[in-house]
């Protein structure tokens, strides 16, 4: 009986890399434009809000506002990059371009394809997040030696949000539905999870809500790393992000199996 579901799971530990390499090869052809596109928005938010509001706000949590905001923008850009790569890139490969159809005629299983897409979306998240970290460090808003600590947190953020987005594309009939995911889930999360202002500014009830959201845990990992502070409850934050990743991966693979392998 369970053999029915084998197709939804990765066949082995390395098949996914063929999918990752395909996407990398395609990305390389337009790498510069893609990088600029990924970095432009969080950068303008960082400088616009950071310098603009920073003038009025002064210090937050004992540091300049722009340094506080930098970690929020790193986490948010990782979230957005991973999500967009999945809902637009992977969805196109599944839907309009039929790339997945071609792959599913080979040795790879649907699980291999999903895993490869997740790894690729997480890679894009790492590129965007690291880009902003480097700019922040160059301008003195982040500590250089902290980058190696921030990297795994950025990667985990990427995988978690790619998995969540994979559930969305498994359910969405067309591109039109992605805007709901963005406006109803991603944007509120950015405001609730301490990306732009400290969570402690929120009413207690909303603080409780934020504790359950993945972005809050990403920020709690990335911010101390970038500011060279001691992080607390690292295990909890990593654990929550891992649970989001694994549950969403399994759910998306099963939903996609139902959608594509009817």
């Amino acid at each position: 009986m369970w053999e029915q579901y084998a197709a939804a799971l990765p066949a082995n530990a390395w098949n996914w890399s063929a999918v990752w390499r395909r996407n990398y090869m395609a990305w390389r052809k337009a790498a510069l434009a893609s990088l600029l596109g990924n970095l432009a928005e969080p950068m303008s938010a960082l400088f616009g809000l950071g310098f603009g509001l920073g003038l009025m706000i002064g210090q937050v949590d004992g540091i300049s506002y722009i340094a506080f905001l930098a970690a929020g923008m790193v986490a948010t850009s990782a979230m957005i990059s991973a999500t967009f790569e999945t809902v637009y890139g992977a969805f196109a490969r599944m839907h309009a371009q039929r790339t997945w159809d071609a792959i599913l005629c080979t040795e790879l299983t649907l699980g291999d394809v999903v895993l490869g897409e997740l790894a690729w979306a997480a890679t894009k998240a790492v590129l965007a997040g690291t880009g902003i970290t480097i700019v922040a460090a160059a301008l003195g808003y982040a500590a250089w030696p902290s980058i190696p600590y921030a990297l795994p947190a950025i990667a985990l953020t990427g995988v978690a949000f790619a998995s969540l987005a994979m559930v969305v594309i498994a359910l969405a009939p067309s591109y039109d539905y992605f805007v709901f995911y963005q406006t109803l889930f991603l944007t509120p999360m950015m405001y609730l999870c301490g990306a732009i202002f400290p969570v402690t500014q929120l009413p207690i009830a909303l603080q409780r809500v934020a504790e359950a959201l993945p972005l809050a845990h990403s920020i709690d990992l990335i911010r101390p790393a970038m500011l060279d502070r001691d992080a607390s409850s690292v295990g909890l934050h990593v654990g929550v992000l891992c649970i989001y990743t694994i549950v969403a991966f399994v759910v998306s693979a099963l939903l996609l199996r139902r959608r594509l392998m009817r």
Binding site: A18, R21, M25
Partner: peptide, 28 residues
């Protein structure tokens, strides 16, 4: 098994040679 599907699903952004390379990787 080799498959020629009803609708072409080649990788449009790739060259002919690259299409073969990418596909070969799916077979390890």
């Amino acid at each position: 098994i080799g498959v020629v599907p009803q609708a072409d699903n080649l990788d449009l952004e790739f060259t002919v040679r690259e299409n073969l390379l990418v596909f070969g990787r799916y077979f390890g």
